[in-house]
């Protein structure tokens, strides 16, 4: 239990530092990546490349068999179908991401840096998450 919590915290710390160094905590930079018809900042392509390279290597080398160190089994998504929930949800998320330049990870990572402007955003985002979880079961 203790080691599981410690490893989750360490993962979070590394994730938060990674987001900051990558420039993901800057909404203007994220919007600059999405602005392919204006002055385009391709930096987020390299965030994806670095993240996927390391995680994919780890996944395919170490995690395809056995079990996790501090849990009884791997919890991987079982859904395989491309359904309308996946597409509708991703469209809504993409529009919000483009409008604010913020997605859930950077919102959480910015809480301590600028609580006054982030906490109201976080509250509305969490309300949206809860509402979305309810809607997902009905469509």
């Amino acid at each position: 239990m203790g080691l599981a919590l410690l490893s989750a915290a360490i993962s979070g710390i590394i994730f938060g530092i990674g987001l900051a160094l990558a420039g993901m905590l800057n909404p203007a930079k994220v919007a600059g990546f999405l602005d392919i018809f204006g002055l385009w900042d391709p930096s987020l392509m390299l965030v994806m490349a670095g993240g996927i390279a390391v995680n994919a290597a780890g996944y395919f080398l170490f995690l395809r068999s056995g079990k996790p160190l501090f849990a009884s089994s791997f919890s991987l998504p079982e859904a395989r179908q491309i359904d309308k929930k996946l597409i509708i949800g991703s469209v809504l998320f993409g529009v919000g991401w483009g409008l604010a330049g913020l997605c859930p990870g950077p919102v959480v990572a910015s809480i301590g840096l600028d609580p006054l402007s982030i906490l109201p955003f976080l509250a509305v985002m969490l309300a949206g998450l809860k509402l979305g979880v309810i809607i997902r079961t009905r469509i």
Binding site: S11, G18, L21, D41, M48, N55, P68
Partner: peptide
């Protein structure tokens, strides 16, 4: 505005964090 090295380094850390969470908590 292009920051290829820092963004790649940040990405590597993000990937490492994801690997650690999967390795330890699954």
């Amino acid at each position: 505005e292009f920051t290829p090295l820092m963004s790649f380094l940040g990405g590597v850390l993000i990937g490492a964090a994801a690997f650690i969470l999967m390795l330890t908590k699954g």
